[in-house]
Amino acid sequence: MEINATLFGQLITFAILVWFTMRYIWPPITKGLHLRAQKIAEGLAATDRAKTELEHATHKALSLINEAKRDAAHIMETAHKRSVQTIEEAKQAAHDEGQRLIERAKSEIEREVHLAKDVMRQQLVALSVKGAEIIIRKQLKETDQAALLDELVNEI
């Protein structure tokens, strides 16, 4: 239990162990710890970033959906208007067509009436002529007839 040369032995062992630790153990381990801390910090930052990005994306999606809804409503409205318009136009066209058909039928009828009147007039004339002929034939005598015929022949 006295101080002896062991002191130097332990001094040297201690010095070498401390030097070895300082040179080959402490730097890599603290560097590793530092790297891990950095990694964790990066991960946390990435999480934050992802969160805000998600928020942005949600907003964007919502606005897109709203826009699409508006568009759809607009399209439906236009289509409705258009259909109403088309129906109105069709009604109008049908009405016009009907009017025209009526007009045509009327004029046709008028024409037919004229035609019929003409025919009847001719027939009336023919009948009148016939009647006149009959009356005349009754009143004229045979002689008179002959005188007339002569007269006609002379004229020719």
Binding site: L17, F20, T21, Y24, I25, P28, I29, K31, G32, L35, R36, K39
Partner: peptide, 15 residues
């Protein structure tokens, strides 16, 4: 001590 610490230092995992 030196061996164990050196082993850990060499096989340091940052994960």
């Amino acid at each position: 001590i030196g061996g164990v610490l050196r082993y850990v230092a060499v096989h340091m995992q940052t994960g």
